[in-house]
Design a binder for these strands. Sequence first.
DNA 1: CCCGAGCCTGACAACGTTGTCCAGGTTCTA
DNA 2: TAGAACCTGGACAACGTTGTCAGGCTCGGG
Lengths: 345, 345
Amino acid sequence: MPQTNLRSATRYGTRPTMKDVAARAGVGLKTVSRVVNGEPGVTPETERRVQEAIDALGFRRNDSARVLRKGRTASIGLVLEDLADPFYGPLSRSVEEVARAHGALLINGSSAEDPDREQELVLALCARRVDGLVVIPAGDDHRYLEPELKAGVATVFVDRPAGHIDADVVLSDNFGGARDGVAHLIAHGHRRIGFIGDMPRIHTAAERLRGYRAAMEDAGIPVADAWMSLGVTDPERVRRAAEEMLSGPDPVTAVFAGNNRVTVTVVRVLAEQTRSVALVGFDDIELADLLRPGVTVVAQDAADIGRTAAERLFRQLDGTLVAPERIELPTRLITRGSGELPPAD
Amino acid sequence: MPQTNLRSATRYGTRPTMKDVAARAGVGLKTVSRVVNGEPGVTPETERRVQEAIDALGFRRNDSARVLRKGRTASIGLVLEDLADPFYGPLSRSVEEVARAHGALLINGSSAEDPDREQELVLALCARRVDGLVVIPAGDDHRYLEPELKAGVATVFVDRPAGHIDADVVLSDNFGGARDGVAHLIAHGHRRIGFIGDMPRIHTAAERLRGYRAAMEDAGIPVADAWMSLGVTDPERVRRAAEEMLSGPDPVTAVFAGNNRVTVTVVRVLAEQTRSVALVGFDDIELADLLRPGVTVVAQDAADIGRTAAERLFRQLDGTLVAPERIELPTRLITRGSGELPPAD
DNA sequence: CCCGAGCCTGACAACGTTGTCCAGGTTCTA
DNA sequence: TAGAACCTGGACAACGTTGTCAGGCTCGGG
């Protein structure tokens, strides 16, 4: 009869270990390890016995112990702003696909645009010894990552550059995209063009604002303060900002929306207007082609950004990469109607 | 600010341990542990010295070792179909929020609707010893989870029940929602109503189909095979299916779309039709209210589903829960115009 | 018949942390 | 002032796995 082991697999809440498997199969611990990892040097007969014991006990290797021994976790972390945002879903998914191709799992966390929470998340991931990090920064100082980088944690920043450290970054050409979008409106005859965007302390928002200003300046159009709304994100305030620009003595004839959430709200506001107002938005939005008029946007490819960042991450881990680099991906202007409306003065 | 190139730093790939910290601070190993974990029994002066050493070395506790010792990882796994789908983003986010409230991280993986990949992911998560699992099943046999459940891994299924094992499940009232949606069309005078949905081997698809049939039967309307398209998901084939239903000798006057992706494609097809065709879709879609007509949908609250599932998961871990349960959340019919169009024969 | 080579197998240490337990010192009480 | 209670700090084992290394076996050639 088999001896009753207090730590046997049958006890609720306890899991069988290689030792248990070894005991049951009547072999040594290391032999089980060899079978589990497909290492050579095990007789087919022995392997069969071990496999039988594994199945019978429902053994599953404990990766925590494995990681402790081997030093690599085969997992990477992704810290983004909000997974519920339609921009980040595809991004996360494409990072996951690349990770999967390298046999790694993805842990992700939402910073909710809060620098403290970003740091908390990143450090939690580091404590778990992720092999690499993809970070969409919320804060603007990342010196807290220095020890991690020094320890060899591969790191790629996305969407916004890192603060005060030298690291890879993958981002869209926010400046150029915004400039082109605004220039597109100008080309269609607009001069009084509104801009609604996020706080300029956010890099993307600042760059897009810069693009707006550049396009206006290139066209020799002085910008009125009343045409700009910065740091406004929640629907209610975006709505108010848009309505203000559209009323008053000198109303705008076109609006450039600084991100997808702003665009959606502006579309709602414009739908209520009697006057026709042109609109170009940054970021594509689903169903934009089905609206009347279709929404013209400056699109960035979230999946492409994620893939590029993740591939770079794994090249860091391969040791293929040395110097940090800044990779800027182009945006694409998609004309669907709303950006081609003529000014209605 | 000075930027340091950390990739070329020395001691690449090695991290300080508590032992290193202890040596530098001139104290014992366990004292460092106490400081790191905020345990009592350390003089302020000693604590200061330890903290100094920690900062100087950039020490970060290795959670792998911690997990190995403590047995809990403070992380949960979420296996879903595709994070890029707008239904799953909010779901994942709400699971993450609940996890965060319990001090846990979230690891998620996309199964791409492939049973093998689901199993592979789930087992990888178990090997990492996640404390709990939220699974949106792709396959229909989950007996492979038995050893895990026995070992105490908390598990909640979402959206579809588990196959061949007894486990918690949180899902929408797919049957009732679809029945109500179709009944809504019938109430507006439609009799020839099309149904486009996913493969009936998927639980939600089967339930929604059942709801469609029930509503039709309740109204005494016999269903023609030509009105139903099952197992069709990709846009191109959905388009063809819709076009077929809308042409021919006995065309449908209304369509019930079985999920958000189908709805989007059907909206596109209907926009091209000269005839007005009514539409009700399962799942809400963004901007549905801005289309003309607005899209009437049977909405399920993804965030609520995720929250409910995650809370139940943590109640399992608390030990508050014993018997597995099936929790069905109600759907909501949101009328926006497309479902209230009269039949145009 | 013996020896070396080659193959399987298992004992043991180590990974970095935490729990247990005890030593040594200080303070309080009788 | 002795003794007890208390406090701080450290030595040591254990968590489950993998790398190292050595022992034992078989087999073939000299």
